[in-house]
Design a protein around this nucleic acid. Sequence first.
DNA 1: GTAAAATATTTGTCATAGACAAAAACTTCG
DNA 2: CGAAGTTTTTGTCTATGACAAATATTTTAC
Lengths: 332, 332
Amino acid sequence: MSIMTVSFICSERSQLSKTIPAPKRTKPVLLTAIGRVERETGLAKDTLRVWERRYGFPKPLRDGNGERVYPPEQVEKLRVIRRLMDGGMRPGKLVNATLAQLSERFGASRVEDSSRSGEPSPMTEYLPLIKAREAGVLQRQLAHDLMRLGLQRFVVDVVAPLNVGVGEAWTRGELEIYEEHLYSEQVQHVLRQALASAPRMTRDPRLLLTTLPGEQHQIGLLMAQACLAVEGAECLSLGPQTPARDIVLAARAHRVDVVGLSFSSAIRLREARAAVVDLRKHLDRSIGIWAGGGLWAGMKEPVAGVTMIASLDAIPAVLSQWREQHSKAVYA
Amino acid sequence: MSIMTVSFICSERSQLSKTIPAPKRTKPVLLTAIGRVERETGLAKDTLRVWERRYGFPKPLRDGNGERVYPPEQVEKLRVIRRLMDGGMRPGKLVNATLAQLSERFGASRVEDSSRSGEPSPMTEYLPLIKAREAGVLQRQLAHDLMRLGLQRFVVDVVAPLNVGVGEAWTRGELEIYEEHLYSEQVQHVLRQALASAPRMTRDPRLLLTTLPGEQHQIGLLMAQACLAVEGAECLSLGPQTPARDIVLAARAHRVDVVGLSFSSAIRLREARAAVVDLRKHLDRSIGIWAGGGLWAGMKEPVAGVTMIASLDAIPAVLSQWREQHSKAVYA
DNA sequence: GTAAAATATTTGTCATAGACAAAAACTTCG
DNA sequence: CGAAGTTTTTGTCTATGACAAATATTTTAC
């Protein structure tokens, strides 16, 4: 993680501002090699090749060396498919549909939510702000709602639905990725501010918060931390992507009672499950594991020795339950 | 990025706290499949296989299905090798060395730095705090130094060397990854606090800050943002990992003057270079690109139309140069 | 009819081995 | 000593086959 060295190679001005020549575009067509497609879509190279073999899609062109080059429409379609798969659909049904047909499928998974009641969703209020590209206004509105509702309700009623809504809006093509990034950055800012100013109570349980490798999303972690801090739990966050081995070491070193893990739905259920099972295997039995994230709502059987928390709403209940059990143990 | 759904599947207590059965460890030996090794070391599956074929290392065992399973020592050695390669060494010379021999090599790249002068490095002050596992104390010390030195000097003289030092300490086995994570989290916290309380000047240039996909490290970005904010530049951060296409869109939408990219040394030079060249190709010529990070110190020829900033020290100079050129343009 | 068990399909990941181009290191020449 | 040419190193790509885990479908039992 060493990031910056202190050497100073920029002493020559001529080198410093080489803003002069500016390259000319060679071809207006942008073809993407398989390695890059893997990075952009999150679909493994092996998977891309096997889909081509089995389903006939994607059907990349070949360059001079016989290597696959993907035109942008196919990459775009792959991105959408990946997105739908995260929502539980299977690739066999998706690859041979047109982009238009795929877009329709999105509706299916959201009907229950949007038409559930007449009450205004946070999305109707915030989406224009995000699209207006006014970072300052967005941040002030968030800060305002935070003040009005308090941290707990702000997270549960505003931020959590907003995350879902923003993700869906992106899926429907209503938002660009950069707008999502910008939103995410503002929310993180507001949440971190709130956490910093919240008084630190040192009450049981002591929690170690992080995500497993591959899960990059910090917002889930921050939301959880906020909900836990409000309830007086002592949180220690390692940030995202801590390897299992290091979670075990850190949990021991800091003598925590519980390890809290956050999972976004951008990760596949079975992988997440396997990773949690693995962690449970190696972590001391006296230390609890709480796995949070909407991901778990779709799971059939729970993992032994792990508490699944599918909603932030559930955090207070889980906490009080833990405290109850723990106090009993002291008396017993 | 949809992270949490609002469904509440935890209403049944029995499911909620399945902390009962607790699995028994089957085998004390921890064998790692190739996919996981890829994730943990950052070395592609193809690379792992081709090294095995060519150099005879790693030499994984095979499970019942003839699939590779890597014992922990080999994974550890791979991690160290990866680390050394990021420093510019070549794998052929490394794979057949013992772990002890590899550790020696680390010295080579740091001699110039540590023995350069007698002045106390921030490391001597902070390393004990990190190892003491007292997050609160560490944070207070950081905040104290921030107050004492001011944001600019704090970033350049304390945080930047600390990042390098912490990375090296990890390499030498003096720090665990989780300790690095914890340190990183505290630093981010302090930097974000400082940025939030800094008054927002709206002076040219307008910057869009982010990292390219694959570059996860946020600290470099935050440090840059701090240095830029101090100098009065208007920063808009998208957080890490924005695809090139979206950087182009965002830069246009927000009418920025410059796109600032941060690169840690955990990424390979040629890949970074290629990515920057690609971005330059697609970004409007009127928008500048500043690529920051110690990475670029090792580069031979600069990229046309891109300003490389190898050190945070250089930021004020680059800024004033930009302003100078830009004001000239106005009068011309 | 529903629930459980058995069977079938879908799907991702792994294996093998050969090929090649870009980068780095090493020679040779002026 | 530096430029130009040559060799080695190295990562990534290709192709096809195989298999197990997850999911869907059918059959069987109650």
